[in-house]
Simulated assay, not measured.
Amino acid sequence: MQYLSTVGARTATTVSSELKAAFALRLGADIAIRYRSEDVNEKLRSWSGKDGADACSTLSDMRTSHEASNTPRPTAGW
């Protein structure tokens, strides 16, 4: 987020808590969507004015990454 905001990109992130939202916003995110209480797709569409994102990246701890890699999912639809 820090790099992207310095080159003029608009950034959105998903977070699980208010504490993480505040941290992400301090790092340069334009919006922090609380995925446990908000509809991520709806918020992203409303914020971006588009049907999805231009690019996506996933950052997580090793445990979460390992769990996600073992869980197949349908096409993201971007």
Rank of each mutant, 00 (worst) to 15 (best):
Q2E: 04
Q2T: 04
L4Q: 03
S5Y: 02
T6D: 02
A9M: 01
R10P: 08
R10C: 04
A12F: 04
T13N: 06
T13M: 10
T13F: 04
T13H: 02
T14W: 04
V15Q: 03
S17G: 04
A22G: 11
A22K: 11
F23T: 02
F23V: 05
A24R: 01
R26C: 03
D30V: 06
I33Y: 05
R34P: 01
Y35I: 07
S37N: 09
V40W: 06
V40K: 03
N41M: 06
K43R: 15
K43E: 15
R45E: 05
W47M: 09
S48C: 10
G49Y: 04
G49H: 08
K50R: 09
G52S: 07
A53Y: 15
A53E: 07
D54T: 06
D54Y: 09
C56P: 02
C56A: 12
S57F: 12
L59C: 10
L59Y: 15
L59E: 13
L59G: 11
S60E: 09
S60F: 06
D61N: 08
D61M: 04
T64G: 09
T64Y: 11
S65C: 07
E67I: 03
A68Q: 15
N70F: 06
T71Q: 14
T71A: 13
P72L: 13
P74M: 10
A76C: 09
W78D: 10
W78F: 14
